[in-house]
Write a protein that binds this DNA or RNA. Structure first.
Lengths: 224, 224
DNA sequence: GTCTATATAGAGATAGAC
DNA sequence: GTCTATCTCTATATAGAC
């Protein structure tokens, strides 16, 4: 079933970090979850901070690659509203969907990132760096082309709100279930994606709606 | 300057918890920040969990009271779009604004809540309870009246996204500054509120926009 | 490469002097 | 009511057997 101890340790670490954060999880917890020994953790990773670093190294690139791949497809859509929705979906889906392998880890990894960003742990801060900012910038540019005349300030704030909404939906899905008295399932990820994309789309579109209709916007032809 | 040691300890605890979370902050850190002794913490609060409990007790009621007060004012607005914006502002402002005293603590307390919700700490989970859910439910109802025909599912998800966006903007304001290459200040709270209210308004309005214009919606006269 | 045993530091909590 | 001193537990990290 398991390839090797190192893999098992990495998987166990993501699972536990995504559940309780970085500080609350001890190396002992991770070793136990992986069915391995405490010593093997120091052997493979040296320190807790370096373990986190390797988790990021493993997931960051595939997730962003998948996002950019989907973004490329989305950009070929002519209708501005449809394109905007597809761009947003390209950003959200790879972060949200549970994955089998090699595509960045999906929801569990994203949930871990959400918690780490909240904890603002010194170890994590060094690692997170701006690896994701580059991708976000590319997406903001693509979104801007769908919403002609939108001020940069509005675009940036809305991208912040989108990420916050995404994070919180992964962190606290139970609140959705509770607030709806059980009528809506906060753990329904397909529904969450759909609602999130629709909501973000409305937010971004409104930036242009003041003067021109978004429907009329046709961007310059893009070589992609 | 300081009333007594207990107050100083409570203030120091909120400050540190809102900065680094619950797990990462030790009782020693709090005592030091308050200029008090470690022993006084156990004397006044008994345990770390109970300290957190007292922080909640101190801030929850005033913050929600202020929200409901502003909600009462907002509900008197006739125009549905204007009313929606005012309702959203009533929800956001008390959570976001730095406070002098007695109004629930504002941004620092909200930031602490954001981090605690991410850490999903066992101590915190018991305390947070559903004290805030009641208020959220009231707001969702008020919002629903501004968006006739909106499905409950959409309203609940959007309220989730709103809270997530609010939380993340307090947790990681630097990202806004970074993404905009310094052109937008992520720590400008007035701007954040304005952008957040506008964005949420667009999201909620879109729920009704499919069939009827929001502008036409007039709610039943409310006794308030 | 994986284990056991252990060093060292720091946590929450308590007892008792003042 | 606030301090010092200390108990007990658990953390990260290391050393060395296998």
């Amino acid at each position: 079933m398991r390839k090797n101890v190192k893999e098992a340790l990495l998987d166990a670490a993501v699972t536990l970090f995504s559940r309780s954060g970085y500080n609350a999880v001890s190396l002992r917890d991770i070793a136990k979850e992986a069915g391995a020994n405490l010593g093997s953790l120091t052997y493979h990773f040296g320190s807790k901070a370096n373990l986190l670093k390797e988790i990021y190294a493993r997931h960051t690139q595939p997730m962003n690659a998948r996002r950019l791949e989907l973004l490329g497809e989305a950009r070929r859509i002519r209708d501005a509203e449809d394109r905007l929705a597809a761009i947003l979906r390209a950003y959200v889906v790879p972060a949200y969907i549970s994955s089998s392998e090699g595509d960045g880890g999906g929801a569990e990894f994203t949930r871990m990132r959400a918690i780490l960003s909240a904890e603002s742990n010194p170890d994590a801060k060094k690692i997170i760096a701006d690896a994701f900012d580059d991708t976000s910038r590319i997406f903001i540019e693509a979104i801007a082309e769908c919403v002609p005349g939108a001020p940069q300030e509005g675009l940036v704030w809305r991208s912040q709100f989108l990420l916050g909404a995404l994070y919180y939906s992964l962190i606290n899905p139970e609140r959705v279930t509770r607030l709806s008295n059980g009528q809506v399932d906060g753990n329904d990820r397909d529904a969450a994606i759909e609602q999130l994309v629709q909501t973000a789309q409305a937010g971004f579109s409104a930036l242009a709606a003041q003067h021109t209709s978004v429907k009329d916007a046709i961007p310059e032809q893009r070589i992609n």
